[in-house]
């Protein structure tokens, strides 16, 4: 049963991934990507990681996909339906690069060897940690499954604290950078078509920009 389900979900996942790459309409490609994210969440459920499945839906479909759609609409023409064309040469080169990457990955993962006599990375269960392993609560796999939110939270704030904080700083920097780019300093222009707003919140700026872009392109 599980094997069949996995097969079905994996097949649909590969098909929607192909759809993402091959769809000519950008919003359709985005929709296929959403389907792919959802099927990844299904795989998490198959692995009894329903917390991760919910987080996957929340982060990738609820946030990333929406931002992606916004991005498509703000950067290209507003309906996002100018079909992009790829030249045959580009198609062949891209295909070759993809096949090459796949070969390298498969070969690398299956033939991986440990450094200086140690066992291979994918055959050991312990991972390097800042926080000493002995100080952690020993928790069984079943407990982690039954309260995965707790398990993930504890690991994020103990074992993976450095990576977690680094990611947080990176995202904050990105946010500040985005706001700094979006703000236009200086006095308000007299030209009524010029939409200059100083010191406005980045999010409201994005929304306003979308609206004024739309109205000006339609007017």
């Amino acid at each position: 049963m599980n094997q069949i389900l996995f097969g079905v979900i994996a097949t649909m996942g590969v098909l929607s991934a192909l759809g993402t790459v091959l769809a000519r309409n950008l919003v359709h490609a985005g929709l296929f990507l959403v389907a792919f994210f959802f099927l990844i969440a299904c795989q998490f459920v198959m692995l009894e990681a329903e917390f991760l499945a919910a987080v996957q839906v929340l982060v990738y479909i609820g946030a990333v996909a929406i931002i992606l759609m916004f991005g498509i609409m703000l950067t290209r023409n507003i309906q996002g339906d100018d079909t992009t064309t790829v030249s045959r040469a580009g198609f062949i080169a891209g295909g070759l690069a993809a096949v090459g990457l796949l070969t390298v990955l498969i070969f690398g993962i299956t033939h991986e060897e440990g450094r200086s006599g140690r066992p291979a990375w994918n055959s050991v269960t312990t991972r390097p940690a800042i926080y000493p392993a002995s100080a952690r609560k020993s928790e069984s796999q079943a407990a982690a499954i039954n309260n995965m939110g707790l398990a993930v939270g504890e690991d994020l704030l103990t074992r993976y604290i450095v990576a977690f904080e680094a990611a947080g700083i990176l995202l904050t920097a990105a946010l500040v950078g985005a706001i700094a780019l979006a703000i236009q300093e200086g006095p308000v222009s007299d030209d009524p078509s010029d939409r200059v707003k100083s010191k406005q919140n980045a999010e409201s700026l994005a929304a306003d920009e979308a609206e004024s872009l739309l109205t000006s392109s339609r007017a």
């Binding site: 917390f51 919910a54 839906v57 929340l58 479909i61 609820g62 309260n147 939110g149």
Partner: peptide, 20 residues
């Protein structure tokens, strides 16, 4: 589900995509 509240927030965020 043990993480029902996260699930609830996740599925309710789907509606934004539908509206869009």
């Amino acid at each position: 589900p043990p993480s029902g509240l996260i699930y609830l927030i996740a599925v309710s965020s789907l509606s934004a995509l539908g509206i869009f």
